[in-house]
């Protein structure tokens, strides 16, 4: 059984159907890229996978030893976070919160885990810096470290390179690829089709036409070809 299996899923908000009859699955070690135009329901899909939203119909099952709350999440930044007075250490450690249950304070193991993940993301020297004073790329690393504290299995990334400059974007993609090679399953939502076909093992394309399959299949399919062409013409920042 796969980590995440989605069957006949229909999604929407405010009674309006955005996506219907979606079927796909994510297995251990996959790097799935979810692409599609604005408004195609990428964010809604992601929130449904995280069980922040109820689907209209269909179901999402987790299996292969994955529990529902073991999906780490890298959200897009909110306005609240932009001037939040918190140190990097505090934020990374808060990723362990889900493990705590009713226990009020963090254990020694959780503090070690937070330290290890800061090291992994190369932000150890920023530990006591204030989050709001960091650059965009550094902030994303902090949130990635936090997500890694929540899980070592699956990471769901929502537009992880939005607003980053090309150099930092490339570093971010390398970082994510590295995590995938370490065995962490990646689900990434992206606008950036050229990066998607470069790094992903599987592609889920949603919108008017839906495609799910491996990268190779996507590149051969009609929808894939037309989108990759469009990507080359439009944005050349991969």
């Amino acid at each position: 059984m796969a980590f995440i299996t989605v069957t006949d899923l229909s999604l929407g908000y405010d009674e309006q159907l955005v996506l219907r009859d979606l079927n796909f699955s994510v297995s251990k070690g996959d790097y799935l890229c979810i692409v599609g135009e604005n408004g195609s329901g990428k964010t809604t899909l992601m929130k449904t996978i995280l069980h922040l939203k109820e689907p209209i119909s269909g179901k999402i099952e987790t299996g292969d030893g994955l529990k529902q709350n073991e999906i780490g999440y890298l959200p897009q930044q909110t306005i609240v976070q932009k001037d939040f007075p918190a140190s990097v250490k505090e934020i990374v450690l808060s990723g362990c919160q889900g493990r705590c249950g009713f226990r009020p304070f963090y254990s020694k193991e959780e503090k070690t885990l937070a330290r290890e993940n800061m090291e992994r993301m190369g932000i150890t020297d920023l530990a006591n810096r204030c989050y709001r004073d960091l650059s965009g790329g550094q902030q994303q690393r902090v949130l990635l470290a936090r997500a890694l504290c929540a899980t070592g299995k699956v990471l769901l990334l929502d537009e992880p390179v939005a607003g980053l400059d090309p150099k930092v974007t490339a570093q971010m993609y390398d970082l994510i690829e590295g995590l995938n090679k370490e065995g962490i399953t990646i689900i990434m939502i992206s606008h950036d089709i050229s990066a998607a076909v470069r790094y992903a093992s599987h592609i889920l394309h949603i919108g008017d036409r839906v495609f799910f399959g491996s990268r190779e299949e996507y590149l051969k399919s009609g929808i894939g070809k037309s989108f990759v062409e469009m990507g080359k013409g439009g944005e050349n920042n991969g």
Binding site: L50, A86, S94, G98, F105
Partner: peptide
């Protein structure tokens, strides 16, 4: 509840998704 209040204040969605 200090740690939980911090987690929920900083990022409610993340907290919810990871089981808080």
């Amino acid at each position: 509840f200090y740690n939980k209040i911090f987690a929920v204040t900083f990022d409610e969605e993340f907290a919810k998704a990871t089981g808080t």
